[in-house]
C-alpha cells in the first residue's frame, strides 16, 4: 500500500480535526439548547439589529455577534452551535493553508503558488462577506 505524502497527511489531519471540533461544538450547542432552552436574556445588540432588518432574532451574522453571545453568562447555546458552523466554514480554508505550508516545505513552489492563489480567493470572499 502506497504511503500518503507529507502534504496529504497534513491536510488530512487539519480537515479531520477541524471537522471533529466543528461537529463537537455544534452538538454541544444543541445539547445545551435542549437542556436549557432559549436563553432568558439574549444579546440585545444582535436582537435589535436582526429585528430592524427583518430576520430571525436567533441568527448570527458576524463573528462579533457570536463572541458577544458567548460572553453572556450563561452563554447562548445557539452561539456555541454557530461557532461550530463557523469552524466548519473555516476548516477547508485551513486545509488549503496547510497545503500551502506543506508544498512550500517540500520545495514544490508551483503548487505552493496555486495553493496561495486559492487561499487568496477564499480570504477575499470571507473579507467581502465580512464587509457586507
Amino acid at each position: 500500500m502506497s504511503a500518503p505524502s507529507p502534504v496529504e497527511r497534513l491536510v488530512a489531519r487539519v480537515l479531520l480535526w477541524g471537522g471533529l471540533l466543528s461537529i463537537s461544538l455544534v452538538l454541544a450547542g444543541l445539547v445545551f439548547y435542549a437542556i436549557a432552552g432559549h436563553p432568558n436574556a439574549r444579546e440585545i445588540v444582535r436582537v435589535v439589529h436582526n429585528r430592524d432588518v427583518g430576520r430571525s432574532v436567533d441568527v448570527f451574522a458576524s463573528l462579533g455577534d457570536v463572541r458577544r453571545a458567548l460572553a453572556q453568562r450563561p452563554p447562548d447555546p445557539l452561539a456555541i452551535t454557530a461557532l461550530g458552523l463557523v469552524c466548519l466554514l473555516v476548516t477547508p480554508a485551513l486545509g488549503v493553508a496547510a497545503a500551502l505550508v506543506a508544498f512550500w516545505r517540500a520545495g514544490d513552489r508551483l503548487y505552493a503558488g496555486i495553493a496561495a492563489g486559492v487561499l487568496g480567493m477564499l480570504v477575499l470572499s470571507f473579507a467581502l462577506a465580512a464587509g457586507g
Partner: peptide, 27 residues
C-alpha cells in the same frame, strides 16, 4: 468543500444561516 466555504461565508454574513436549521443538517 473549498468552493462552498467561500459562498457559505457570504450566506453567514447576510444572516441567512439559522443555527437551529443548519446544525442538524451539518451533523
Amino acid at each position: 468543500g473549498i468552493t462552498s466555504a467561500a459562498s457559505a461565508g457570504v450566506y453567514f454574513a447576510r444572516g441567512d444561516i439559522h443555527p437551529m436549521l443548519a446544525a442538524p443538517v451539518a451533523v
